[in-house]
Design a binder for these strands. Structure first.
Length: 584
RNA sequence: GCGCCCGUAGCUCAGCUGGAUAGAGUACUCGGCUACGAACCGAGCGGUCGGGAGUUCGAAUCUCUCCGGGCGCGCCA
């Protein structure tokens, strides 16, 4: 609707008096916006005020010229000049009734924009596979999934990817932790490393490993701990865990150690996969960092950087000249010990995404990663890619409270609340909705007690209730022996002329604009707030009107309106990954 | 110290590329079921948009500065 009004203004612009056009020079794209106050009509344009300066004319005078130039349209009832020079547009009743027709005919595609041809890869969550997802990852998952859905609705081709950090020290620590728990399950007794992963899930995986490998990986405890440096808190816990990993590699051999690592990795990834699937979060591809090493992508990237003279050697390490591309300092890509850094993998990974043909690389990351945005962009530019092809959305932290008290979260200590626990407590729908209710750059306080005890006050139920109520009306309708056909309703939509009805149709007609805006701003919360408002409009209407009236013509029209409401609620909730129940 | 983000009603937060009288939820005070679901609706109360300066027809929004809070600044991932 907004687009149609806008195109009328574009035409009007071209029809302005010649002397005005000459003064205006380059013609602007007219901005059309919804009015906040119904007494200002339905849409307003500030075009006259924008033109006033270059034309050196009175904005109200310009507004009059614009109105005169505006082509006749059945959509517009009347126009007026208001305030400093706004052009207010009042839509015709017909224009609104046409909306209902569009919604019901388009059904689940209502609100979707035409294909843009743009290919976007959304990388999100990408939590290290060293333990189950926790509540912080849940927010990344809910946001990334909803945003992906929105981008699809806005006409983009979207690919959802999870980057698996399965190479590097953290994985080695995981393997060592798992192996030690496995030794414990065979009766070994020792003090667990300060820096090991201490969560219960490691013990459970160790038990599984015992079932599969029996005692094949058991080594005498004294041999394992012989001549190791002191662990924390008195010694150095980092040195200790690294030495322990080295010992594990020696005693088990690379193959045995690899077996332990792969066993743990697979178990944890399976758990994450199941968890996300249950949460309604689909991943198209799990991209392993390990593959970047084995398929030569990292070597290729380094070769490219060398060829472009973007690296130098210092202190035995290889550095990337990130400062040449706007980063604050140069970064190591190959360590003194010959190993490539995580950052090297990251350049290779992002370059590879571009090579797969994606126009936009959209990363959803925790806010603690903000410092790394500049260097990855620098890496992309150095490898010949446009810096704008990378877009990063940072997600602020979730602070978890239990009864007003802050819950500490740390994967390492095992003292944390998992996404799975959260979902079990508040339900998938409430969790999905709550997570995206706030803007991504806003901290989120999630109080478990509150979410549990007041779960029926949850805004998601308010919206779902509107949907269920409409389904219930439809049920009652057939119970009473009435039927409803869309085709019959089209002839009687003019009966929808009350204020509540108009307000409701205005809300419905805004939906496509909300989709565009939410997608453009990467802001699922805009859609969440819209749905809440729409549900409110409906509940208000519901309380003031009876739908199942005897007059068939009127009833057909009334039902058409609420069927349209049901459709838009269902469409919106689907994008947020929330169910639209027929009863609750 | 440098960089990024945040500061809007008692509390939790919306506020689109600058637009007309800054909005929701919650809390509190009233009122509404013999109705298609009261998991609902309506009314009221509540603000110097952190402070100050600037840009202009017009600023919560843009610029500068100060104050307060979060995060980051590894040859970790």
């Amino acid at each position: 609707m907004k687009n149609r009004i806008q195109s009328l203004f574009v035409q009007a612009l071209r029809q302005l008096p010649v002397e005005t056009l000459e003064k205006a020079g380059q013609l602007p794209v007219p901005e059309i916006e919804r009015t906040r106050d119904p007494s200002h009509g339905d849409f307003a344009s500030n075009l006259a005020m924008k033109l006033a300066k270059p034309c050196r004319m009175n904005p109200r005078e310009l507004a009059a010229q614009l109105i005169a130039a505006l082509p006749d349209s059945p959509l517009i009832d009347k126009t007026e000049i208001a305030g400093p020079g706004f052009v207010n547009v009042y839509l015709s009743a017909d224009a609104y009734h046409q909306q209902l027709h569009d919604i019901i005919e388009s059904a689940e595609t209502y609100g979707c924009q035409p294909a843009s041809g743009k290919k976007i890869i959304v990388e999100f969550i990408s939590a290290n596979p060293t333990g189950p997802l926790h509540v912080g990852h849940g927010r990344l998952a809910a946001y990334g999934a909803s945003l992906s859905n929105l981008l699809v609705a806005a006409g983009n081709e979207v690919f959802r990817e999870y980057y698996v950090n399965d190479a590097g020290r953290q994985m080695a620590i995981l393997a060592a932790s798992l192996w030690l728990r496995y030794l414990e399950s065979h009766g070994a007794v020792f003090v667990f490393p300060q820096n090991g992963y201490k969560g219960d899930y490691i013990t459970r995986i160790a038990d599984d490993m015992k079932l599969e490998h029996a005692d094949k990986l058991v080594v005498d405890t004294a041999t394992v701990f012989a001549n190791l440096p002191a662990d924390g808190p008195d010694g150095d816990e980092d040195k200790f865990i690294d030495a322990l990993i080295e010992r594990a590699r020696e005693t088990l051999g690379e193959q045995g150690f690899g077996q332990v690592l792969d066993f743990g990795l697979k178990k944890i990834l399976d758990d994450i996969r199941d968890d996300l699937e249950e949460f309604g979060v689909h991943i198209d591809r799990w991209y392993a960092e390990h593959d970047l090493h084995s398929n030569g992508a990292i070597d290729e990237t380094l070769k490219l950087l060398r060829a472009n003279k973007n690296v130098f050697e210092k202190d035995g390490a290889v550095w990337f000249r990130a400062t040449d591309f706007g980063d604050e300092k140069d970064r190591v890509v190959v360590r003194k010990n010959g190993q490539t850094t995580y950052f090297a993998s990251d350049i290779a990974y992002h370059l590879e995404k571009r090579q797969r043909g994606f126009d936009l690389l959209l990363d959803v990351l925790g806010a603690d990663h903000h410092g790394y945005v500049a260097r990855v962009r620098a890496g992309l530019e150095a490898t010949g890619q446009p810096g704008e092809s990378l877009e990063v959305r940072l997600m602020h932290f979730v602070a978890l409270f239990r009864g007003g008290e802050r819950v500490q979260m740390s994967t390492r200590s095992g003292d944390f609340v998992t996404l799975r626990e959260l979902r079990r407590e508040v339900g998938n729908d409430a969790a999905r909705f709550f997570y995206v209710l706030r803007s991504n750059d806003q901290h989120l306080d999630f109080d478990l007690e509150l979410a549990k005890s007041h779960s029926s006050d949850n805004p998601v139920y308010y919206i779902q209730y509107a949907h269920a109520r409409i389904c219930s009306v439809m049920q009652q309708m057939s119970d009473k022996g009435f039927d409803w056909q869309a085709e019959r309703a089209w002839n009687h939509l003019e009966k929808l002329n009350e204020q509540h009805e108009k307000a409701l149709i205005v809300s419905l007609s805004r939906y496509p604009e909300v989709i565009s805006l939410s997608a453009k701003n990467r802001a699922p919360h805009t859609l969440a707030h819209y749905l809440r408002d729409l549900a409110n409009d409906f509940h208000t209407y519901y309380n003031a009107h009876t739908f199942l009236v005897e007059d068939q013509d009127l009833r057909d029209a009334l039902i058409a309106l609420i069927v349209a409401v049901r459709q838009v609620i269902a469409n919106g909730l689907a994008l947020l990954g929330v169910s639209a129940p027929e009863s609750m």
